[in-house]
Write a protein that binds this DNA or RNA. Structure first.
Length: 850
RNA sequence: GCGAGCGUGCUGAAAUUGGUAAACAGACAGGACUUAAAAUCCUGCGGGUGGUAACACCCUUGUGGGUUCAAGUCCCACCGCUCGCACCA
């Protein structure tokens, strides 16, 4: 007997009691524990791990329900399933809370993890909690520091000066989202750009690979692949050197349109281009540069283009005696190409606007259909003009010719550039993983020795005063070089939290391993993640960084699949209706009532009219948040899970509806009432039993549902899967079956819905005399051989329009069918002599064309 | 501006490779039960025309065209919405 303790059976549906009861038993029996088993096929289901904010939200409930249904489905289908959970527990909210509430970030985080974990437990997820990890745990970040060191040793991480958002009042660095209208979110100070020396991961080294390998990801949404593709941003073109015959000046320019070189009339540089150093003493230039940087920061500065004339000139590489003026401009960006372009105003909108502004000549060199400049199309039929040896050539041809010429003249070469920039991982923050680097007094930058790891965060810190607590700590940063005894200071920056989440899925394979970040055996068994489920908001950064980590770790000699996630499911948001007052104050939908088509809320004694907005993603600011924990408390986890699954397909947004929840509860209650006293839980139907026609139909319907439901679950079409279950239950209720066939059909039903409503199914099975834990019962196999009727409904059409249907035996021939139709009472005014053509699709349709 | 996706009842949505549009739900309405309410059960629920009625016929998947025996599905144009990127040379 698997359920070895005797549990109280519930006659009435009481989710609160039964869910607690089974969760306790399942935990005691450790039924979700996963172990490597080479004799079984593995299946790794992972949902993106949560940030421990303290409370789960609807998005979590949806995400983890989708994952759980999947995990249980594959487990019951004989796979060895790994389904772990952990905490993405470093990050700014802990620091903010620490400042606001004077609590230690560690305590705050741990408290949040405890309360969120208990909320997750109540959802009844099939998670192997023995594998729980938390990124702020030194046992986790110790290995992360080792990874950083390995990256360092393999040249995958380096230090470089880079600009950050600096709050001069709080003396802190701000994330982009903490800068609101150019001001610090807390202090209100105008944010400055400050140059700091920071650590970078060399992700751009893999640009091409990360781009090309997207093609292998057949089970990723096209949308996500496209977003990554655009982010990596490949462009093909040429690099061209512009030199001056009068000075040493030489500027390397990148262009995707080298064939327009004869239309070049100026050079434009980013204000951060190396040449700008020559002007650093020039007051006007410094002013101009600051203005440009501000423009580029504030993305709403429009398309206004400003320039700074250097009065320097370079020679045109193909036109003798033609000199091109060199400008600095705000519209040239330092982090793309070389931060330098040649301007061809006739065929580039931006160059055109700039040239107009500064009276630079505009020379047309492409004969296109449209006469108006700028003409920026690249039509295959267009030909070049005013371009010497390129004249008459089409664009493609001209491009090839000019690149050849450039390479022959040794003034440049064909070139491929990527938008993807190296990943800056330094954060001037306390609550993150310390970077295991020391700066020795002799100027050397060294990684920390292995036996000194982990470099733990100090707990006696002062938060709330300005600056980085690690920087301000009296002695944490002061250390010694363990080899030489020389004085040294620690790196006080911590790692971007995306670093933490770029390898946690690897750690889940061997979360307890003390010596190594991951055990090769376990890793090679479990990886890659088979199904990875999470929000679309991580389409680029997290997923790209994780793909990069896999490659970078390979470079460090680790045996890891280079694509960590085989199939990706991006779930939509959970939305809810919104209400606003006339003066745009958001009102919680709970406080709104409807009368005669208008909406009201009460403020004090007054009734105030409110405007109904559209349904939007649940957010605190819009006051349309519903707390999943209270829903689980009131209606039970199974109701909540069923609702989360059945309304919309996973990738689409889900409309929250309390009526929907209530209806799910009623449905479960109805089935519970029906089955709790009547059912005997059985796994198979006795072979020797003689079934009536009706019973055969029920048997057939049930087995068909097994197959349809399983197919839908495999394809993540949970909403239609549930619809099929409801069709089955509607059918079974209506048929009023008795005895064995009743037991058989309903037992199958319970086994199918089990993956969605595990407590409900388990309780009913237990009530019905089963001592089995359904988690261990193999998924039912569909018997599709028995056919209770050999009839097919065939649609009769005239000119493609439905006129009626007729029931005939299966696989009827065309001639027989026509005969039957004409012989039937209602022959749908078909006149064969006027019929030109008869289209017949076996078992489906017959169409008379008249 | 560039790129992608989506437009189906009052609402969430279904509809294999083109083959019965609206499965399955929610809301609503009517009825049964009840002293009453709730719960539960039953019925109806895209629009129109004709008929006392059962019923019959016609229209209907954002708009307009096209391909096809047959279009929600394929093609073209337009309109609207959503998302991503955004001076990327």
């Amino acid at each position: 007997m698997e359920v070895s303790v005797v549990l109280r059976k519930m006659k009435k549906y009481n989710p609160e009691i039964i869910e607690k009861k089974w969760q306790k038993l399942w935990a005691e029996k450790k039924i979700y524990r996963s172990k490597v088993d080479q004799t079984k096929k593995k299946f790794y289901v992972l949902e993106m791990f949560p940030y421990p904010s303290g409370k789960i939200h609807m998005g979590h409930l949806r995400n983890y329900t989708i994952g759980d249904v999947t995990a249980r489905f594959y487990k019951l289908n004989g796979f060895n399933v790994l389904h772990p959970m952990g905490w993405d527990s470093f990050g700014m909210p802990a620091e903010n809370a620490a400042i606001e509430n004077r609590v230690n970030p560690k305590d705050w985080t741990e408290q949040n993890i405890r309360s969120m974990k208990s909320q997750l437990m109540k959802i009844g997820l099939s998670i192997d909690w023995e594998r729980e990890i938390s990124t702020c745990d030194p046992d986790y970040y110790k290995h992360q520091q080792k990874i950083f060191i390995e990256f360092f040793k393999n040249g995958l991480v380096y230090k470089k000066d880079s600009f950050v958002n600096w709050d001069p009042i709080d003396k802190t660095v701000l994330a982009n989202e903490q800068v609101i209208d150019g001001k610090g979110w807390r202090s209100g100070a105008i944010v400055e750009k400050k140059k700091l020396s920071q650590w970078f991961l060399n992700i751009s080294r893999f640009s091409e690979e990360l781009l090309n390998d997207l093609n292998q990801l057949n089970n990723w949404p096209e949308k996500v692949k496209l977003m990554q593709k655009n982010w990596i941003g490949l462009s093909e073109g040429a690099e061209i050197k512009f030199k001056s015959s009068e000075s040493k000046l030489s500027i390397d320019v990148f262009t995707t349109r080298p064939e327009t070189i004869f239309g070049a009339s100026f050079i434009a540089l980013s204000v951060e281009h190396p040449l700008s150093l020559k002007f650093s003493e020039n007051e006007n230039f410094v002013k101009f540069r600051n203005k440009c940087l501000k423009f580029q920061e504030a993305k709403d500065s429009g398309q206004e283009k400003i320039g700074f004339n250097t009065y320097l000139f370079v020679d045109h590489p193909f036109l003798k005696n033609k000199k091109l003026p060199v400008y600095f401009s705000n519209y040239v960006l330092i982090n793309y190409g070389n931060g330098a372009i040649f301007g061809c105003p006739a065929h580039d909108e931006r160059d055109y606007a700039f040239a107009k502004e500064y009276n630079i000549p505009i020379k047309c060199i492409i004969k296109g259909k449209e006469k108006e400049l700028p003409y920026c199309e690249t039509d295959e039929k267009d030909t070049l003009t005013n371009s010497e040896f390129l004249d008459q050539k089409n664009i493609k041809n001209a491009k090839e010719t000019i690149i050849e010429k450039i390479e022959k003249n040794k003034i440049g070469q064909k070139s491929i550039k990527f938008k993807l920039k190296d990943w800056g991982v330094s954060r001037q923050r306390y609550w993150g993983c310390p970077i295991p680097i020391i700066y020795r007094e002799d100027g050397k930058i060294l990684t920390v020795e292995d036996d000194e790891l982990p470099i733990k965060l100090p707990e006696d810190i002062e938060l709330g005063s300005s600056g980085n607590p690690l920087e301000n700590h009296p002695n944490w940063k002061i250390t010694k070089c363990s080899k030489t005894g020389m004085g040294a200071i620690r790196e006080t920056d911590t790692l971007d939290t995306f670093f933490d989440s770029s390898w946690y899925f690897l750690r889940f394979c061997s979360p307890k391993s003390a010596q190594k970040a991951f055990e090769t055996n376990e890793l090679s068994y479990w990886m890659p993640v088979d199904h990875y489920i999470g929000g679309i908001e991580h389409a680029i950064l997290h997923l790209l960084y994780s793909r990069f980590f896999a490659r970078a770790l390979k470079v460090c000699g680790k045996k890891i699949p280079k694509e960590p996630f085989k199939k990706l499911i991006t779930q939509g948001m959970v939305c809810h209706e919104t209400f606003r007052t006339k003066d745009n104050k958001w009102i919680d939908p709970k406080n709104v009532c409807k009368e005669n088509g208008t909406y009201w809320t009460k403020q004090g004694d007054k009734k105030i009219k409110v405007i109904r907005g559209r349904s939007e993603k649940m957010s605190k600011s819009k006051k349309n948040v519903v707390d999943p924990d209270s829903i689980v408390f009131t209606y039970g986890a199974d109701t909540a899970r069923l609702f989360m699954i059945s309304d919309s397909p996973p990738e689409r947004d889900l409309e929250w509806s309390i009526d929907g929840i209530k209806a799910m509860y009623k449905y479960l209650e109805k089935i519970y009432d029906l089955l709790s006293s009547k059912l005997n839980f059985i796994l198979t139907l006795k072979n020797d039993i003689e079934l009536s026609h009706e019973e055969k139909k029920a048997y057939e319907f049930t087995n068909k549902t097994i197959s349809l439901f399983s197919e839908d679950v495999k394809k993540y079409r949970f909403n239609t899967a549930v619809a099929k279950l409801r069709e089955l239950s509607n059918f079974l209720i209506r048929r009023k079956l008795e005895g064995d066939i009743f037991d058989y059909c309903w037992s199958i039903y319970l086994r199918l819905i089990y993956i969605i409503t595990p407590h409900f199914s388990q309780e009913l099975a237990y009530n019905a005399g089963s001592d089995q834990i359904i988690e261990n019962v193999k998924w039912p196999e569909a018997d599709l051989n028995i056919s209770s009727n050999s009839e097919e409904t065939i649609v009769i059409q005239i000119n493609g329009k439905k006129k009626g249907t007729i029931n005939v035996e299966e696989n009827v021939t065309k001639d027989k069918l026509i005969e039957t139709i004409l012989g039937s009472q209602n022959h749908y005014s078909i006149n064969l002599s006027k019929t030109k053509k008869i289209i017949f699709v076996p078992n489906k349709i017959i169409n008379f064309v008249v």
